[in-house]
Write a protein that binds this DNA or RNA. Structure first.
Length: 440
RNA sequence: GUCCCGUUCGUCUAGUCCGGCCCAGGACACCGGAUUUUCAUUCCGGCAACAGGGGUUCGAAUCCCCUACGGGACGCCA
């Protein structure tokens, strides 16, 4: 805001691959800054390399941005006064700007392409995160390819000028290119925008920056794995920026309030999926019961079919006791499968072990609940404690085998709540089935 | 090779601008304990860093220089 000029920022991806984490973070920082300053966030598609641009990746990009909650004020599908927003449709504009360069003698033709003549003087890149960076651009470079299409450097600068971009926020891999861009702005007699070259995201381990090729690098992967977009977004905010008050889990409005370009770090950051995962879990547990249900239901329906979910009250109860324990929505189906299957799969080796060690406990428990009239978590806890005391055992001796016999698992929701939710019928059936199998 | 940027716990970071409050704080991960029920939840505790060397200063993570290491750019890719 500082200079009173209207803040206009842009995210300018090229739709040549999928939407990756680095791009998402760049989009996010632009969006945050625009919202912080009540400026304009523009989406511009740099598809000048037609051979590498596809419709599919454009849609992946738009969907990914929407999924992360990054809405754009101008751009594809939104329109705006500075359009069109696809570079492939801006040929006339590039032609006009090229003419200006021709007139001032800054361009020339060679090998069928049009080149820009550099000034031969160092230029200063005014960068908000790095401070002024002085760099000499030594070689002339192509601005229009021999096939007539504008090069990245040329189209990028022309568009930033035509769209009146006030701040260029992009990855640090462009810092060296910025001297070309400043030369171009100056050749047009324009004052370059403020730059903010943000640190790169490095791969989780090993050398180099994160590339689209490796697993965990694409926004779509997290979406497919049912990560919460708010969690991913929150995590990405903290990669290269911090609110400086030790807070990490923050509402997006609070982040917008505090976000500032000057607070962006200068060093590259390594992507830590474990921390993201932890953050996702925190968001999941903070969801209201209702929202958790809304998110989880379609995932379960896809896995178990709508028929298994016919009893809505039962599903709601299951989800309620799972929410506090499950790590992610991705793991939810496996975590709660036994609630929706007729007979959960029992691992043979474990069955053998529990049969050998705990058949007596299971028999005892089964006969105790055969006559039990109430089947709440509290009742079951009392019942089990009495049983254990009477038999000279501990509750633990019963819990493991019962959980296994009833769910086929060794971990799961809180034990008594699980039995109560399953209900007396299912619990008795499964215990009988387990014991019957022992007699064969 | 040339040029540009960077360097605080294993990782993300606070502190660096305006040197003392920092024998360096938070989070993830990891390890241990508690929740007289498992656990992947929750709570408590622990481990762990100023890249190295010179300077400036009464005093440096903070300022200056050098070295090392890391990253990036040098395309008719973006």
């Amino acid at each position: 805001m500082g200079d009173g000029k209207k803040v206009r920022v842009r995210f300018a991806p090229s739709p040549t691959g999928y939407f990756h984490i680095g791009g998402a973070r760049t989009a996010l920082f632009n969006w945050l800054y625009a919202r912080h300053c009540q400026g304009t966030f523009i989406l511009r598609i740099e598809d000048t390399d037609r051979s590498r641009s596809t419709d599919e990746s454009l849609h992946t990009l738009l969907d990914g941005l929407r999924w992360l909650g990054l809405d754009w004020d101008e751009g594809p599908e939104a329109g705006g006064a500075s359009g069109p927003y696809l570079q492939s449709e801006r040929g006339d504009i590039y032609g006009q700007y090229l003419e200006r360069l021709n007139e001032s003698g800054r361009s020339y033709e060679r090998d069928g392409a049009i080149w820009f003549r550099v000034s031969g003087r160092p230029v200063t890149i005014q960068d908000v995160v790095h401070g002024p960076v002085v760099r000499l651009e030594e070689k002339d470079f192509v601005i229009v390819r021999s096939d007539g299409s504008p090069s990245f450097h040329f189209a990028n600068v022309v568009d930033d000028l035509a769209m009146e971009i006030s701040h260029v926020i992009r990855g640090e891999d462009h810092l060296s290119n910025a001297s070309k861009h400043v030369e171009l702005f100056q050749a047009f007699g324009a004052i370059p925008p403020q730059f903010a070259h943000i640190p790169l995201i490095l791969k989780t381990s090993g050398p180099g920056k994160m590339s689209k090729r490796e697993t965990g690098a694409l926004v779509d992967e997290y979406r497919a794995r049912h990560y919460l977009p708010e969690a991913l977004r929150n995590y990405l905010c903290l990669l290269g920026w911090s609110p400086k008050n030790d807070l990490e889990i923050m509402a997006i409005d609070d982040i917008i309030d505090r976000f500032d370009l000057a607070g962006i770090n200068r060093s590259n950051a390594r992507f830590d999926e474990k921390k993201l995962s932890h953050m996702n879990g925190t968001y999941l547990r903070r969801l209201s019961k209702k929202n958790f249900f809304l998110l989880a239901h379609p995932i379960l329906a896809e896995k178990f079919g709508p028929a298994a979910l016919a009893d809505g009250a039962y599903v709601a109860k299951v989800l309620e006791i799972c929410q506090e324990k499950v790590r992610s929505l991705e793991e939810l189906p496996a975590f709660c499968a036994h609630f929706f299957q007729k007979n959960p799969e029992l691992d043979a080796a474990l069955w053998e072990k529990f049969f050998r060690e705990s058949a007596a406990c299971l028999e005892e428990f089964l006969s105790a609940i055969e006559m039990a009239k109430d089947f709440t978590a509290d009742d079951l806890e009392d019942l089990l404690h009495h049983l254990a005391a009477a038999g000279g055992r501990t509750a633990r001796d019963y819990i493991h085998p019962i959980r296994f016999a009833c769910s086929g698992q060794l971990v799961g929701p809180s034990f008594y709540a699980m039995l109560a939710t399953l209900g007396a019928g299912r619990v008795r059936d499964r215990l009988r089935r387990f014991l019957d199998r022992c007699r064969q």
